[in-house]
Amino acid sequence: AELMTLTIVKGAQGFGFTIADSPTGQRVKQILDIQGCPGLCEGDLIVEINQQNVQNLSHTEVVDILKDCPIGSETSLIIHRG
């Protein structure tokens, strides 16, 4: 298992991935745009978004944080894999 830092840019259609609740937090459910989120894999656990720890937040709260990220700006994700 490892922590990885990824930088992704939000496009007009969003980030290009969906998230779902899991017992340990929000996991990447589906990658819709592989080019839009390079390095991200289905099943990755989202630990931080732009230096904000999201592991204890609800699904709705994490979705809102992602929605609030401006289109075209870089967003830093720390994910836990494995």
Score class of each variant (00 low, 15 high):
residue 23 P to I: 04
residue 77 L to W: 08
residue 18 T to S: 12
residue 31 I to G: 06
residue 11 G to L: 06
residue 26 Q to M: 14
residue 62 V to H: 01
residue 78 I to Q: 03
residue 6 L to R: 05
residue 15 F to W: 12
residue 41 C to F: 13
residue 67 K to L: 07
residue 74 E to H: 15
residue 3 L to S: 11
residue 61 E to S: 03
residue 16 G to S: 11
residue 15 F to Q: 09
residue 68 D to F: 02
residue 72 G to Y: 01
residue 59 H to E: 15
residue 59 H to M: 15
residue 64 D to W: 10
residue 56 N to G: 13
residue 21 D to Y: 06
residue 11 G to M: 07
residue 67 K to N: 11
residue 44 D to V: 00
residue 67 K to Y: 03
residue 47 V to L: 06
residue 42 E to H: 03
residue 37 C to H: 13
residue 33 D to F: 07
residue 56 N to Q: 06
residue 82 G to T: 11
residue 4 M to E: 06
residue 13 Q to R: 11
residue 80 H to N: 15
residue 39 G to M: 03
residue 77 L to V: 11
residue 52 Q to F: 09
residue 70 P to N: 07
residue 53 N to H: 10
residue 29 K to M: 09
residue 70 P to W: 07
residue 63 V to I: 03
residue 42 E to Y: 09
residue 63 V to M: 14
residue 76 S to Y: 15
residue 66 L to E: 01
residue 73 S to F: 14
residue 67 K to C: 06
residue 71 I to Q: 04
residue 26 Q to W: 06
residue 40 L to T: 01
residue 23 P to D: 05
residue 79 I to A: 03
residue 12 A to Y: 05
residue 42 E to P: 14
residue 9 V to H: 03
residue 40 L to C: 01
residue 75 T to C: 02
residue 81 R to D: 01
residue 50 N to W: 01
residue 8 I to C: 12
residue 74 E to G: 04
residue 41 C to E: 13
residue 2 E to T: 10
residue 61 E to F: 01
residue 69 C to P: 01
residue 50 N to V: 01
residue 61 E to T: 02
residue 13 Q to Y: 07
residue 42 E to A: 07
residue 3 L to Q: 13
residue 5 T to Y: 04
residue 64 D to L: 05
residue 60 T to E: 09
residue 58 S to A: 12
residue 82 G to R: 12
residue 8 I to S: 09
residue 16 G to L: 12
residue 58 S to M: 08
residue 21 D to Q: 14
residue 79 I to Q: 00
residue 68 D to T: 04
residue 78 I to L: 09
residue 5 T to W: 03
residue 3 L to N: 14
residue 35 Q to G: 14
residue 32 L to N: 05
residue 63 V to W: 11
residue 19 I to V: 13
residue 37 C to Y: 10
residue 17 F to K: 00
residue 69 C to M: 06
residue 78 I to K: 05
residue 31 I to S: 02
residue 72 G to E: 11
residue 78 I to S: 13
residue 54 V to Y: 00
residue 23 P to C: 13
residue 76 S to E: 10
residue 68 D to G: 09
residue 54 V to D: 00
residue 43 G to C: 03
residue 30 Q to Y: 08
residue 18 T to H: 05
residue 78 I to R: 14
residue 37 C to S: 13
residue 21 D to L: 15
residue 9 V to K: 05
residue 53 N to W: 03
residue 10 K to T: 03
residue 82 G to P: 09
residue 54 V to R: 00
residue 73 S to G: 15
residue 12 A to M: 10
residue 65 I to P: 00
residue 44 D to N: 03
residue 44 D to A: 02
residue 27 R to V: 14
residue 35 Q to C: 05
residue 3 L to F: 13
residue 38 P to Q: 05
residue 67 K to E: 10
residue 41 C to M: 10
residue 29 K to S: 14
residue 9 V to Q: 08
residue 16 G to I: 02
residue 19 I to L: 12
residue 24 T to R: 13
residue 48 E to H: 15
residue 42 E to Q: 15
residue 18 T to Q: 08
residue 74 E to L: 09
residue 5 T to L: 06
residue 60 T to I: 14
residue 2 E to C: 10
residue 36 G to Q: 09
residue 12 A to S: 10
residue 70 P to T: 06
residue 79 I to G: 01
residue 63 V to L: 02
residue 55 Q to V: 11
residue 46 I to F: 15
residue 59 H to C: 13
residue 79 I to V: 06
residue 18 T to D: 12
residue 4 M to W: 06
residue 53 N to Y: 08
residue 52 Q to K: 14
residue 5 T to S: 13
residue 41 C to A: 14
residue 51 Q to T: 13
residue 37 C to K: 03
residue 16 G to E: 09
residue 56 N to R: 10
residue 11 G to A: 13
residue 58 S to P: 04
residue 65 I to S: 09
residue 16 G to K: 11
residue 49 I to N: 01
residue 9 V to I: 07
residue 65 I to G: 02
residue 41 C to I: 14
residue 72 G to Q: 13
residue 61 E to R: 12
residue 78 I to H: 04
residue 57 L to R: 13
residue 48 E to Q: 07
residue 16 G to Y: 04
residue 48 E to G: 08
residue 36 G to F: 02
residue 49 I to T: 01
residue 74 E to A: 03
residue 67 K to H: 03
residue 9 V to R: 09
residue 28 V to S: 00
residue 61 E to W: 01
residue 39 G to D: 03
residue 60 T to K: 12
residue 43 G to D: 13
residue 80 H to C: 05
residue 3 L to A: 11
residue 38 P to G: 08
residue 15 F to N: 04
residue 75 T to S: 02
residue 50 N to C: 00
residue 31 I to T: 07
residue 18 T to F: 04
residue 55 Q to L: 06
residue 5 T to G: 05
residue 52 Q to E: 12
residue 65 I to C: 09
residue 29 K to R: 10
residue 27 R to N: 05
residue 27 R to P: 01
residue 8 I to T: 14
residue 73 S to C: 15
residue 29 K to P: 00
residue 22 S to W: 09
residue 58 S to E: 08
residue 26 Q to Y: 15
residue 24 T to P: 12
residue 65 I to H: 02
residue 34 I to R: 07
residue 20 A to I: 15
residue 15 F to E: 05
residue 33 D to E: 07
residue 13 Q to F: 07
residue 81 R to H: 14
residue 25 G to M: 03
residue 20 A to H: 15
residue 58 S to R: 05
residue 75 T to V: 13
residue 43 G to E: 14
residue 7 T to D: 04
residue 68 D to K: 13
residue 22 S to N: 01
residue 26 Q to T: 12
residue 11 G to W: 03
residue 44 D to M: 01
residue 26 Q to D: 04
residue 16 G to W: 10
residue 63 V to D: 15
residue 68 D to H: 15
residue 73 S to H: 13
residue 53 N to K: 11
residue 37 C to G: 02
residue 54 V to H: 00
residue 37 C to D: 09
residue 37 C to I: 04
residue 6 L to I: 13
residue 54 V to L: 07
residue 27 R to W: 09
residue 81 R to N: 04
residue 7 T to G: 04
residue 61 E to G: 10
residue 79 I to R: 02
residue 63 V to H: 01
residue 7 T to S: 06
residue 7 T to H: 12
residue 58 S to N: 12
residue 48 E to K: 06
residue 79 I to L: 14
residue 56 N to L: 09
residue 23 P to E: 11
residue 33 D to L: 04
residue 32 L to F: 01
residue 3 L to Y: 11
residue 52 Q to M: 13
residue 21 D to A: 05
residue 53 N to G: 09
residue 73 S to I: 12
residue 32 L to G: 13
residue 8 I to K: 02
residue 9 V to L: 05
residue 76 S to D: 05
residue 10 K to Q: 05
residue 59 H to P: 07
residue 24 T to Y: 11
residue 55 Q to E: 11
residue 67 K to S: 13
residue 2 E to D: 09
residue 43 G to T: 05
residue 22 S to R: 14
residue 5 T to F: 03
residue 45 L to N: 01
residue 17 F to G: 00
residue 51 Q to R: 09
residue 28 V to A: 02
residue 81 R to G: 13
residue 13 Q to C: 09
residue 10 K to H: 05
residue 67 K to A: 08
residue 32 L to D: 13
residue 38 P to E: 06
residue 26 Q to F: 03
residue 62 V to A: 08
residue 3 L to C: 07
residue 45 L to E: 00
residue 3 L to E: 14
residue 71 I to A: 04
residue 49 I to F: 08
residue 62 V to W: 00
residue 30 Q to N: 02
residue 18 T to I: 13
